[in-house]
Design a protein around this nucleic acid. Structure first.
Length: 585
RNA sequence: GCACCCGUAGCUCAGCUGGAUAGAGCGCUGCCCUCCGAAGGCAGAGGCCAGGGGUUCGAAUCCCUUCGGGUGCGCCA
């Protein structure tokens, strides 16, 4: 973990507690709730006094006496029942800022290996708003993990092996039975040209799904086709391969337009070869058992508040499920990557599924040293509070959502009179960056488990707590620094003198704490808050002190340096959230 | 029925490893551009933290319970 001002302070206060013969855990320091009393506070004396049956005020006083000898502190006071308030010398802030390069730079990968499983697009299905949260949150988390020094591998985990594949095969068969893929006597080679386009698949899938739901005969056909595909029927495999290839091309485009990156493009089908041996192994060791024709693993534990259904590996009809591929994927990842942690950024509604898979994998000894963790999230709802739908009641495609956001951003730019003189390409780029920032920040700034209401008009507003506001704040600093450059005004040594500088410095220096907290709770809204507070503090500073007209050149140089550092911290935070900052807007 | 998530300002949301006077944005009121980008800043009004019990010196935070909303519960993903 990278050190921060807060961790340094905690170390000092801990030392004071230890010197009093108390547990260092009591020395935890936090940002003060009462800024007029101090910049930081420690409430440890209260808890420590309780544990040691001491008087909290006299204990706090002893800690105070020890802390007062430290040259870092300009003031250590006690208020209330024993709160310790701390103010730092301004030179401590200046010194920390001078050394802040270390806290704002990415760390070398020394903290272990993490696999982040997110996105989860399905073959043949257009990506829709349901994929948005997983993609945005997962991407933000992988960026944070990489930056903080974890060897991180993201995997899109394509949905390419379940019953939807069987449904599609039967739908194509119904429409074009003459194709060689359906002729059992055909010995190949099968055509190289795909018989369907991405658009075809997107049309066919909902039809096939509806048919399956409405007609038990069709459903049975789909089930059979899925089983035959999984058992290796050549024509089906060849046709399925086309589905995959056509789909992946489209899916890659979608993720690229979102600015979301994956290290690995694996799918459920990739672990198919592992499934047979895995089932054999589980049966041989008596971990899996037959129950009513299906192969299951009982994963209930005595401590369960309610009965946990078993992990189902093979259905009565011989088909496997995503539970099966998920367990096999753990085997695959442990074998190829041997991670310390695997994060599954998937809708909270699948929580029980993951609980079963994790228990099964651990019971079978497949997880290696990896901690398996489901990072769930809530739904994105429409204005009515129900999961987001288009006006027509359908599912909104991700592509269309992005287009809407771009158009809305464009509208705002026109309203604000920005970019009228920009070249068309730059205008389009800025509209895209602003639209994406609006969507991403709105999504990420809510705690991931809460359901939130999607309101594009509100998200794209340039005022208030929005992505575009943060971009604006960063762009404004860039503009200031450009102007300084033109006027040959150079940044210099930072000296903290004014209240707004102090507040801004403290905000910048909180970056490592925001980073670590985001990772610890796997929740990017922490970093969103950091970025927003930082931008606000800068705005206050900027409004209170006119920099370029400052006649004291040392002071001007200091303030320029503070502005430059703010920009660096803000851009870094936004980058971790997957938000781009234009040069101007 | 059982389990999980949630209920905080008019609206949208933070805060939840217990700590002082519960925060932000929008909206509302009033100020601030002859000066670096006002998409901004400053100040203000607005809350029995769903209700009720309990633990504690101290509860929005932990426990129990009621009500209200969402989700899930063996052969879909």
């Amino acid at each position: 973990m990278r050190p921060s001002l807060l961790t340094d302070l905690t170390a000092k206060v801990r030392a004071a507690f230890v010197a009093e013969g108390l547990d260092p855990a009591f020395g935890r320091v936090q940002i003060s709730d009462r800024p007029e009393l101090g910049q930081f506070q420690s409430n440890g004396a209260l808890a420590a006094a309780k544990a040691a049956k001491m008087n909290p005020l006299s204990l706090a006083s002893q800690i105070q006496t020890r802390l007062e000898t430290d040259e870092w502190f300009s003031n250590v006071s006690i208020t209330g029942p024993g709160f310790i308030n701390i103010k730092l010398m301004d030179w401590v802030l200046a010194q920390a800022l001078a050394a802040s390069d270390a806290i704002l730079a990415p760390a070398a990968a020394t903290r272990g290996k993490v696999v982040v499983d997110f996105g989860g697009p399905n073959v043949a299905k257009a990506m829709h708003v349901g994929h948005l949260r997983s993609s945005i949150i997962g991407d933000a988390l992988q960026r944070h993990l990489k930056f903080a020094g974890f060897d991180t591998k993201s995997d899109v985990h394509l949905g390419d092996w379940g019953k939807p594949m069987g449904m599609l095969i039967t739908e194509v068969k119904l429409r074009r039975p003459e194709l060689p893929y359906f002729d059992p006597a055909f010995t190949g080679p099968y055509p190289v040209e795909p018989p369907v386009t991405m658009e075809d698949l997107e049309t066919l899938y909902p039809i096939a799904a509806a048919a399956s739901k409405a007609d038990p005969v069709r459903d049975e056909e789909a089930r059979t086709a899925t089983a035959e595909l999984q058992q290796g029927r050549a024509g089906y495999r060849a046709l399925w391969r086309h589905f995959i290839d056509v789909s992946i091309a489209g899916i890659k485009r979608e993720f690229a337009s979102l600015g979301v990156y994956f290290d690995l493009w694996k799918g459920e089908a990739d672990v198919d070869p592992l499934i047979g041996p895995m089932l054999t192994d589980l049966k041989a060791r008596g971990i899996a058992e037959l129950d009513d024709g299906a192969l299951i693993v009982r994963v209930g534990e005595p401590s369960d508040k309610k009965e946990m259904p078993p992990l189902m590996l093979v259905k009565r009809d011989g088909g496997v499920l995503y539970e099966t591929t998920d367990v096999a994927t753990i085997i695959d990842r442990v074998k190829s990557l041997d991670p310390d942690l695997v994060l599954y950024v998937v809708d909270q509604r699948q929580h029980e599924h993951f609980e079963k898979v994790f228990r099964g994998a651990i019971k079978a000894g497949y997880a290696g040293k990896a901690v398996l963790e489901h990072v769930g999230f809530g739904t994105m709802n429409g204005a009515d509070g129900k999961p987001f739908k288009t006006r027509a009641g359908g599912v909104l495609k991700l592509y269309d959502l992005i287009e809407m956001a771009k158009a809305e951003a464009e509208k705002r730019l026109v309203e604000a009179g920005i970019g009228a003189d920009y070249p068309p390409e730059e205008r389009a780029t800025v509209a895209r960056q602003v639209g994406l920032a609006a969507i991403k920040f709105a999504d990420l700034s809510n705690y991931r488990l809460t359901n939130y209401i999607f309101d594009l008009e509100r998200f794209t507003k340039f005022e208030g707590k929005t992505g575009p506001y943060l971009q604006y704040a960063a762009v404004r600093v860039k503009s200031l620094l450009r102007k300084a450059m033109e006027e040959q005004a150079r940044p210099g040594a930072i000296a903290i003198t004014a209240a707004e500088e102090r507040d801004l410095a403290l905000a910048i220096l909180r970056f490592p704490d925001a980073l670590e907290e985001t990772i610890k709770v796997r929740a990017p809204n922490v970093m969103c808050d950091y970025a927003y507070t930082l931008a606000q503090r800068f705005s206050s500073f900027y409004a209170a002190h006119h920099i370029m007209s400052e006649s004291d050149t040392a002071l001007r140089a200091s303030r320029l340096a503070l502005a430059a550092l703010t920009l660096r911290a803000l851009e870094t935070a936004l980058e971790l959230l997957g938000i781009e900052v234009p040069e101007r807007m």
